[in-house]
């Protein structure tokens, strides 16, 4: 019924997916996006609006939306929820002071009905830093094990070295593909 079905059908044909990257400011969203796309990551500025990248990966067409995470911009996040297949939540693992903020923002997103069908990938980013909290630490602080409403997975990564970016995205694609390309 409705547009969503039509969109799903269209996507189905093109094997297209829409991924939304969110997280607090300075988490490394834009850096992850650029690194994944093989671009220079040393000149990235704070994101004032948003970036979209369309990439081909493993025969999928990925529309990746990277939206600025500064506090005044967070109220705009909801503009991007519609027809999201995968939510990528990026965490600055070294920013212990704001992990509580980070948990609250994530929890609020998980209650959004327009994101109800999306798969959740949490990137515990900046694992290259000595002060970074481990992937398991982040999992505990964000209380990920309490999430029963979404398929989720946490991956420790570094946008600077590129470590684990691919394995995270691959998990996400597999999960989404299993859901939207094989059900009907």
């Amino acid at each position: 019924m409705g547009l969503l079905t039509i969109l799903k059908k269209m996507k189905h044909k093109e094997r297209e997916m829409r991924l939304l990257m969110l997280g607090l400011d300075n988490a490394g969203k834009t850096t992850i996006l650029k690194k994944f796309n093989g671009e220079d990551v040393s000149t990235i500025s704070p994101t004032l609006g948003f970036n979209i990248k369309t990439l081909e990966h493993r025969g999928f067409k990925l529309n990746i939306w990277d939206v600025g995470g500064q506090k005044p911009l967070r109220s705009y996040w909801r503009n991007y929820f519609e027809s999201t297949d995968g939510l990528v939540w990026v965490v600055d693992s070294a920013d212990r002071l704001r992990l509580d903020d980070c948990r609250k923002e994530l929890n609020a997103l998980l209650l959004e009905e327009r994101l109800a069908g999306a798969t959740l990938l949490v990137f515990a980013n900046k694992q290259d830093l000595p002060g970074a909290l481990s992937k398991d630490g982040i999992r505990e602080v964000l209380a990920l094990d309490d999430i029963k409403t979404h398929h989720w997975c946490i991956v420790g990564c570094s946008a600077v070295t590129g470590e684990n970016l691919l394995s995270g995205v691959d998990w996400l694609l597999d999960d989404i593909a299993a859901r939207i390309f094989t059900t009907d």
Binding site: R96, L97, L99, D100, R103, G131, L133, G137, E140, V141, A143, D146, K148
Partner: peptide
Amino acid sequence: IQQQTADKPAPGSVGTVVVDAADQ
């Protein structure tokens, strides 16, 4: 689920954010 975790003092459950002063 939250009540369960509140009963058992699970490490790192919601609220006990692991802000370790030694790392800061």
